[in-house]
């Protein structure tokens, strides 16, 4: 990585954005997965009580 005059690391924004995006995407995917599972569990329960 490039360094500025005072030994400061310059740039790295793409890495920062990637880290935040991956975190957001992973959490969102997990929420979506749980929502899908819940729908499935509810469906099973309904068909059980009907049958």
């Amino acid at each position: 990585m490039a360094e500025g005059p005072a030994g400061v690391i310059i740039g790295g924004w793409p890495y920062v954005i990637t880290a935040y995006s991956i975190t957001a995407v992973a959490l969102a995917l997990n929420i979506a997965r749980l929502a899908a599972r819940e729908r499935k569990a509810d469906k099973n329960k309904e068909s059980d009580s009907n049958g």
């Binding site: 500025g4 400061v8 690391i9 740039g11 790295g12 924004w13 920062v16």
Partner: peptide, 16 residues
């Protein structure tokens, strides 16, 4: 503000 030595990369720490 960006960190003194790490610069903007240090911002990963706020989630890390």
């Amino acid at each position: 503000p960006p960190e003194r030595h790490m610069g903007d990369v240090q911002r990963i720490m706020y989630v890390h």
